[in-house]
Amino acid sequence: MSLPPFQHLVDEHWRDVARLAHGLVGPVHADDVAQQAWTQALAAYPRLTHARNLRSWLLTITHRCAMDHHRAARRTTPSDDPAALAEAPVVPPPDAPDGSLWAMVAALPERQRDAVVLRFVGDLDHRSVAAALGTSPGMSRRLVSDAVATLRLDLTDPEDPR
């Protein structure tokens, strides 16, 4: 077993990690989250036991860092200010091609949002999405299809043909 030089992972996947971070926490905090994900990945890298699915490994770490970010944001949000609380989760990227879509994605329940962003921005299959969310592939499918229904997108999940 041998792992590729870490620089390969950076060169090949930094854009995907950055996009996912943008999708999960918005433009203001995306850099911090991506940076943190890379730092954690670099620290953990030598302990990996195989070199399969390095991309989904990186995106899973990115998702975990995004969740940590949301958790920390909730903690620092004064709880007696409901407006600020509602504001907390995600700011849609202002440069998103379809601003209304991203506003809607941001407004989804957290797990639906994470599932749909991991699935379509991260382009991960349901097994990987489920692993990132700590759930089953069946639940991942459900979260994604609920999100798609809420977004009223005419969108067929290729992983889940109906």
């Binding site: 950076v10 930094w14 943008h22 433009p27 670099l42 998103a96 091609p97």
Partner: peptide, 12 residues
């Protein structure tokens, strides 16, 4: 087509 402005690779 979601293509946010990316600032560059991570600084490690």
């Amino acid at each position: 087509s979601f293509s946010p402005t990316l600032t560059g690779p991570p600084r490690l």
